[in-house]
Nucleic acid binder design. Structure first.
Lengths: 199, 199, 199, 199
DNA sequence: GATGAATGAGACTTCATTCAT
DNA sequence: AATGAATGAAGTCTCATTCAT
């Protein structure tokens, strides 16, 4: 990706996050970089392709963050805390990107949508697997694996809607609190004492 | 509200929910009722005023649902379960309305936004109060009241983003599962055995 | 067709004729009627649909002119003169329309193109049939029916490219001259002495 | 003309022929040679100058073809057949070039247009002179010299609009048929028995 | 109340052309 | 010579809104 393309993408993330994809104009994006309206088009062939590029980058990055935070060989409890923290932190630290990526999917072309949906399923599956493992090993006592997975995912996604608030503006603080909540949600019997920070 | 105005509002909820406020045109709304483009304007003076009317109706309704589900004189545990169930159920049963009301706020005019924000704070405060009460009475063992309130609210709001899924398409089932999760999140020491259904 | 739609169509014919379809803008058309750029769209859903409406009208009208000038029961010679005169006259009198209709076909959408092509074939077939009849009855002595039909059609079509010239600006004069030429082209053995004017 | 300039010109002829000058972009032309958008400009200073270069080349070539086919000292009948064949053949064999050259004149700048118009008049004059000569010598019996010249020219020009058709795809066959037709149009009293082929 | 033509603004996109590389 | 990013203008079309009917 050329430098100009990267600048345009960054600008677009910000504009899309603030106004929403549909309300944001390609002019807004160009203007935010002091470029002429047509300057976007040597780099992205349409507004939708810009959204797709952003969505792909964002969901890939989120998935990577979660996967990287899932330490092989650790207990489900440790794994859950670590991945939840990473997921929450990702949404807080990349709030604009996260917001676009989580809330503008409907504006993608059908085949682009499908590509992104696959990435999202992969991310969900990480949490679901950990929770399943925890229940199998009796370390967790989850009532309903599907609902709990959904809920934990929801917590992360919804962060990008409201973050930062007056009370919570530090990604780490929030990540730790939500990590604890996730332990409770799965009915973890033991608490991990200390954890490497999943930054 | 006249019958025509109500029909238009209902159509608008559906169109806004599917396309998003910015991408939906007043023509779309009119067309979905087989009306001409100008037909909206005798009833709502602008697209934004339609959104405001919907937002007001929706947030008022959600707040009422929650408040009505907060039984005076019951234990925090019972109250929390009941209100969470009501909140979740409301988002599932009124998914289109909920989606518009939760995700299109940024398109409101500033003073309209402020009016809605006040309603939202009232709704949050119901949960926060219950959790606070539970902690005071030692019935709950909440780690971080603010974060937990936020998380519980998030669960409900996010329902309107994804509901229904392949796995969860029954509002009651979901409401019960999320009610349980909320008990765990606050660290409730006793479980309510049975509860009136908050329909 | 509403009055406004008719006015727009007429204006479009003129603008398309002068600049060509591709070089003409919908703005040009609207401006030539002192309308705003968007005023075309309540009446025609796209620039191409305007071209199609014009093409359909034009080719239908040309075909009708030719068919109406083909008098049942007359000799091929009389029929040929009459139809050629009508065809030439149509192209001269409706020069703008003819030009659009004959030279802008490539800008039609594929299915619209096909509909128009069918009309054009019908028109050609009228001439071909007359020439064939004349040869069968030995009234004509055509060298090559296909080439002669093509040539006669070409004469008419090409009128819309150059008409009027300094020398020929009267449709009737031209029509009569071309009628004579067509008699010669088919090798008509007898000349029709007088003919009703195919106006 | 450099090799690159020639390649660009050839590509432009093809693109202009297919889409029309106005609908063809300089990008289309460059892309058809796998060049970048700017690559045209070292060779032609504008799109219009490309059209002018093509028009000049084309009309010069057509005029030369006709002139060369007008054998000094031959009878008008022979001369007419020979030049008509050459003219028709030129339009068939160089169909793309002919189409651009005959139908895109309006897009030339005024002074360029004038230069081309002069060439066109020269071409017409060749036919007109032959017909006039034939009538003077009584070899022809033309009804209307102007109209007949126009008609013969039209036949040639219009070839570039439709050639090839399903029936006529051989330039020579068509040229011979049209040569015959031209004899008839001018009322030639004697037929030329054989003619050198004006290729 | 409803219609639907019309407006004025603005959206996405294309394009001829320029220019630094 | 060629590249390709960028510009400024323009093009097709959409849209919220108005207004005469």
């Amino acid at each position: 990706m050329s430098k100009a393309a990267a600048r345009i993408r960054t600008a677009a993330i910000s504009v899309f996050a603030v106004k929403g994809y549909a309300a944001a104009s390609t002019r807004d994006i160009a203007a935010s970089l002091s470029l002429s309206p047509g300057a976007v088009y040597p780099h992205y062939k349409s507004k939708e392709s810009l959204l797709f590029a952003i969505s792909l980058e964002g969901h890939t990055s989120a998935l990577a963050a979660v996967k990287q935070a899932d330490p092989a060989g650790e207990s489900p409890s440790v794994r859950l805390t670590s991945t939840v923290r990473a997921y929450v932190k990702w949404h807080a630290q990349n709030r604009d990107l996260a917001r676009v990526v989580q809330y503008e999917l409907r504006s993608l072309a059908p085949d682009h949508f499908e590509a992104i949906a696959a990435l999202r399923r992969s991310t969900s599956r990480v949490f679901e697997q950990i929770i399943t493992d925890g229940n199998t090993s009796n370390e967790f006592n989850t009532i309903d694996i599907g609902a709990t997975t959904l809920a934990i995912t929801s917590l992360g996604i919804d962060v990008s809607r409201w973050f930062p608030s007056q009370t919570y503006s530090d990604p780490d603080t929030l990540a730790h609190a939500y990590g604890e909540l996730s332990q409770r949600m799965v009915g973890a019997r033991r608490r991990p004492d200390s954890l490497p920070d999943p930054t």
